[in-house]
């Protein structure tokens, strides 16, 4: 297990490096360097930058130097000093802006992941055991529809329903009185009350995919000879299914959970924007719209790194539950 972990760590490092390069590439994409853009923007507002300060920034970010030099300055500052650069729109360090919102993003992501599992696993298993029966058809059709509804549409629809029929003020993760309040029991409750819409919406699409995978895996496993072996021992039906096919069908499930993380972040960006949540998604969108590239690049980097770590954890989990992976036989 230890060696497996080390091996996976070795795989993760190049991935992280390439992801950071891609993130920086995106920062570089808009035409012209961002300082010029910012100066133009400031001048349009009738402000101007002190030439000395300008020169300092130029050196700090390596403007005008080759891509790799700029990249190196950017990434080394992040890794060594936790310095993601400066957001021009907010005139604050990117790291501060991200850290304010990252907690909620991760919370939202985890809640979504858990909800996805809680819904998808039993639904997939039931769908497989009751193949070609009513329950299977209902789950399949619901799954198809859930897969087809764009999540911003679902968010809008749910928000509308909440607004229209429950009088819930939609938007944000907190009610007005709690937005700037310190953490308290009431604030947590308020958060949970607001959390369910985005969580349900983001979970929706992922759930449909996982139900289908689980169902397919279970159908494959249910007809394997080892299930008959278990029955032939005299095991009760429920336990036969729990101990054998379910256990094995879970393996791809655990590994798809890792692949599922990117789609959760994708959903978060859209849904959080529609519902005006205080997470990183709207911040990213805003920064992209205003070409506040260090902020955008920082968020993309953080999200990608979180995803890679999530995938890494799911790989380790898979190895923990499946000896074939652990011993390199699958």
């Amino acid at each position: 297990m230890l060696r497996f972990t080390l091996y996976r760590v070795l795989h993760v490092i190049p991935t992280l490096i390439i992801i950071s390069i891609i993130s920086f590439f995106i920062i570089q994409l808009p035409p012209g360097d961002f300082l010029t853009t910012q100066i133009a923007a400031l001048e349009a507002q009738g402000e101007s930058l002190d030439p000395a300060q300008l020169e300092a920034l130029r050196i700090r970010y390596g403007i005008g130097e080759p891509f790799w030099v700029q990249y190196w300055k950017w990434i080394s500052n992040i890794v060594l000093h936790g310095d993601f650069g400066l957001s021009f729109q907010y005139q604050r360090p990117v790291a501060d802006l991200i850290s304010e919102r990252l907690g909620l993003t991760v919370l939202l992501g985890l809640a979504t992941l858990i909800l996805t599992w809680v819904i998808a696993l039993p639904a997939g298993v039931i769908s497989a055991i009751r193949q070609h029966k009513a329950a299977d058809y209902i789950i399949s059709v619901l799954g198809f529809v859930a897969l087809a509804v764009p999540n911003f549409l679902a968010a809008l629809a749910l928000a509308y329903i909440g607004f229209r029929f429950f009088g819930q003020s939609v938007g944000g993760l907190f009610s007005a009185e709690y937005v700037n309040a310190p953490w308290s029991f009431g604030r947590v409750l308020d958060l949970l009350e607001h959390l369910w819409i985005p969580v349900v919406v983001i979970a929706l699409a992922g759930t449909a995919g996982i139900i289908r995978t689980t169902r397919a895996n279970m159908l494959d496993e249910l007809h394997k000879p080892y299930v008959t072996t278990a029955r032939a021992k005299g095991l009760p039906e429920g336990r036969t299914i729990r101990k054998y096919p379910l256990r094995i069908a879970l393996n791809p499930f655990v590994s798809t959970a890792g692949w599922n993380i990117p789609s959760i972040f994708d959903g978060e960006v859209i849904v959080a924007t529609v519902l005006a949540l205080g997470t990183t998604g709207p911040l990213l969108l805003g920064s992209l719209r205003s070409q506040d590239m260090y902020l955008a690049g920082g968020i993309i980097l953080i999200i990608a790194v979180l995803t890679v770590i999530g995938t890494f954890i799911s790989d380790l989990l898979l190895a923990a539950v499946d000896p074939r992976v652990r011993f390199g036989k699958a």
Binding site: P225, Y226, T229, Y244, R247, I248, N251, D322
Partner: peptide, 10 residues
């Protein structure tokens, strides 16, 4: 088939 008749993960 003893391979497929036994569970691979137990």
């Amino acid at each position: 088939e003893p391979m497929s008749s036994l569970s691979p993960v137990h």
